[in-house]
Measured scan of single mutants.
Amino acid sequence: EDAPSSDDLEQFAKQFKQRRIKLGFTQADVGLALGTLYGNVFSQTTICRFEALQLSFKNMCKLKPLLNKWLEETDSSS
């Protein structure tokens, strides 16, 4: 699987934040939901840093598919 470019990540982080707010979730909600869904709880700080593009590139790449999946799950259930 190709690693996303930093442009991709930036684009995704923006879209993710907009969708999250529109769906009415806090950063902490998302962190907990990831724990429920995938067994990895993320702190509010981590989600905040992801949205602000302040995580390392490697961590951004790791989180992106999880957050993407969460969006898909959340979209389909709302």
Rank of each mutant, 00 (worst) to 15 (best):
L23N: 04
G31A: 14
T46A: 09
L53F: 07
S5H: 15
Q44P: 14
C48M: 12
F16R: 03
D8Y: 01
A33Y: 08
K17C: 01
C61N: 07
R20I: 00
A33H: 06
F25T: 00
K69I: 14
G39E: 06
A28P: 01
L32W: 08
L63V: 06
S43N: 13
A52R: 12
F57S: 09
A3C: 15
M60G: 02
L71Y: 00
E10S: 04
T26Y: 03
K22H: 13
F12C: 00
R19S: 07
L23I: 00
N59E: 14
P4Q: 07
G24A: 02
C48N: 08
N59D: 15
G35E: 10
S6P: 14
S77C: 09
L66V: 08
R20H: 04
G39Q: 07
G24Q: 01
Q44M: 07
T45Q: 14
K22V: 05
V41I: 12
T74R: 12
K62C: 08
T74Y: 09
S43M: 03
L23G: 03
S56M: 01
L9S: 01
V30S: 03
P4T: 12
L63M: 10
F57I: 07
K14I: 08
Q54T: 09
D8H: 07
T46P: 03
F50Y: 10
G24I: 00
Q15D: 12
W70E: 01
T46H: 07
S78P: 11
T45C: 06
F25Y: 14
I47Y: 03
G24E: 02
L71E: 03
S77N: 09
W70G: 02
L66T: 04
Y38S: 11
E51P: 01
N68R: 10
T45P: 04
S78C: 13
E72I: 07
G31W: 04
D7Y: 14
V41L: 09
D8G: 10
N40H: 08
P65V: 10
Q27N: 05
P4S: 12
W70C: 01
L53P: 01
L32C: 14
E51D: 05
S56F: 02
A13Y: 04
A13L: 00
T74Q: 13
D7Q: 09
E72K: 11
C48I: 14
K14G: 05
K69T: 07
D2E: 15
S77D: 13
W70A: 02
L32G: 05
L53H: 10
N59P: 02
K58F: 04
M60L: 07
T26M: 03
E1Y: 13
K64A: 08
E73S: 09
P65G: 09
F57Q: 12
L32I: 14
Q27V: 08
N40F: 08
L71W: 03
R20S: 01
P4L: 11
D29S: 07
F42Y: 13
K17N: 00
F50K: 00
S77L: 10
E10Q: 09
R19M: 12
T26Q: 08
Q54Y: 01
G31C: 12
L34A: 05
S56T: 07
T46R: 04
F16E: 03
K22D: 13
Q15H: 10
D2F: 14
S76C: 06
T36G: 09
A28R: 13
F25E: 00
Q27P: 11
T36M: 12
E51L: 00
L63R: 01
Q27T: 11
T45F: 12
A52W: 02
F16S: 03
D2S: 15
Q15I: 15
T46K: 06
L34N: 02
G35W: 04
F12D: 00
E73V: 09
K22N: 14
